[in-house]
Measured scan of single mutants.
Amino acid sequence: GYDPNALYCICRQPHNNRFMICCDRCEEWFHGDCVGISEARGRLLERNGEDYICPNCTI
């Protein structure tokens, strides 16, 4: 089920109804503003069928 207190992202904070994006490599969720991806950019990636790779996986 959905846990509203689950911690995500590099900031280890809950979802808090903020835009989030999922890394296509590790499948962890990240707040867009923490990883520099706007909601519009996230939608563009999705539309173009491009993967989002998080900072942890791009090292």
Rank of each mutant, 00 (worst) to 15 (best):
I21G: 02
R25N: 13
C34Q: 01
A6D: 02
C22G: 12
C34P: 01
W29M: 14
L44A: 11
R43P: 14
I21T: 05
D33P: 06
M20K: 09
D51C: 07
N5C: 02
F19S: 06
Q13V: 08
H15K: 06
N16G: 14
C34F: 00
P4G: 06
C57N: 02
C11I: 01
N5D: 10
N56M: 06
G36A: 06
D51T: 10
R47K: 15
C26T: 01
C57Q: 00
G49M: 10
Y8S: 14
V35D: 03
C23K: 03
L44I: 04
N16S: 06
P55F: 03
I37C: 07
Y52N: 03
R43T: 08
S38W: 07
L45G: 08
F30L: 10
W29Y: 12
R18Q: 11
N17T: 08
E39A: 04
C9E: 01
C23G: 00
T58R: 15
F30K: 03
D3R: 08
C11R: 00
Y2W: 15
E46K: 13
L45S: 11
R47G: 13
I37H: 07
N56A: 09
S38G: 11
I10N: 10
E46R: 11
C57L: 01
P55K: 15
E50Y: 02
R41D: 15
R12L: 07
L7V: 09
D3F: 11
N17P: 05
P55D: 01
G32C: 09
G36H: 07
A6Y: 01
E39L: 08
R41A: 12
E27G: 07
F19D: 07
I10G: 04
C11G: 00
T58L: 14
G36L: 06
G36M: 10
P14W: 02
G36N: 09
G36C: 06
C57P: 00
D24Q: 00
Y52C: 04
C9G: 02
W29F: 14
N56D: 10
V35F: 04
L44M: 11
P14C: 08
F19M: 04
Q13S: 06
E39Q: 08
D3W: 05
H15N: 12
C11L: 00
T58W: 01
P14F: 07
C34R: 01
I37G: 06
L7Y: 10
G49E: 15
E28N: 04
H15S: 14
E46L: 07
Y52L: 09
H15V: 13
D3S: 14
G32F: 10
R47A: 13
D33H: 07
D51W: 01
N5T: 03
G1T: 15
R18N: 05
D33I: 03
Y2Q: 14
C23W: 00
H15P: 06
H15A: 07
I53P: 02
D3N: 14
R47W: 08
I37D: 02
F19C: 05
R25M: 09
E27A: 06
A6R: 02
C23S: 02
E50P: 12
Q13F: 05
D24G: 14
E27H: 04
D3G: 04
G49L: 07
Y8I: 14
E46C: 14
C57S: 00
G42T: 11
E46Q: 04
G36S: 10
R43L: 11
C22Y: 13
C34G: 01
C23M: 00
R18H: 13
N5M: 07
G1Y: 14
H31C: 03
I21L: 08
I53F: 07
L44T: 08
C57H: 05
D33A: 06
R41E: 13
P14E: 14
Y52S: 04
V35H: 04
Q13E: 12
I10Y: 02
P4T: 06
R25Q: 14
E28A: 06
G32K: 04
F30T: 03
N5H: 02
R12P: 02
C34E: 02
V35P: 03
Q13A: 14
S38E: 06
C9T: 01
L7A: 14
F30H: 10
A6V: 08
C23A: 00
G32L: 11
D51A: 14
I59G: 04
A6P: 02
F30I: 03
G36E: 12
L7R: 10
A6G: 03
D51I: 06
C54V: 01
L45E: 12
Y2M: 14
E28D: 14
R18M: 14
Q13H: 05
C34L: 01
F19Q: 12
D3M: 15
E28W: 09
I53Q: 09
I37W: 12
E27L: 07
C22T: 15
C54R: 00
Y52G: 03
E27M: 07
R41Q: 05
R12Y: 03
C57A: 00
I21D: 01
H15Q: 06
R47T: 14
Q13I: 07
N56Y: 11
C34N: 00
C34W: 00
C57D: 02
E46P: 05
G36Q: 10
C26I: 02
G32E: 11
E27Q: 08
C11A: 01
Q13K: 08
G36W: 02
E50H: 10
Q13P: 01
G36K: 13
N16D: 08
C9W: 02
I53G: 06
G1M: 06
D24V: 15
I37A: 06
N17R: 08
P4R: 12
Q13R: 07
D51F: 05
I37E: 08
W29C: 12
Q13C: 04
C57F: 00
R47D: 15
C54D: 00
D24T: 09
G49T: 08
G1D: 14
G36V: 05
Y2E: 15
P4I: 06
N17Y: 07
C54G: 00
R47S: 11
P55R: 11
I37R: 09
R47V: 15
P14K: 15
D33N: 04
H31K: 00
C54W: 00
L7T: 10
E28C: 09
G1E: 15
E39G: 04
E46A: 14
Q13W: 03
E28I: 04
C34K: 01
R43V: 05
L45D: 10
C54Y: 00
N16P: 04
E27C: 04
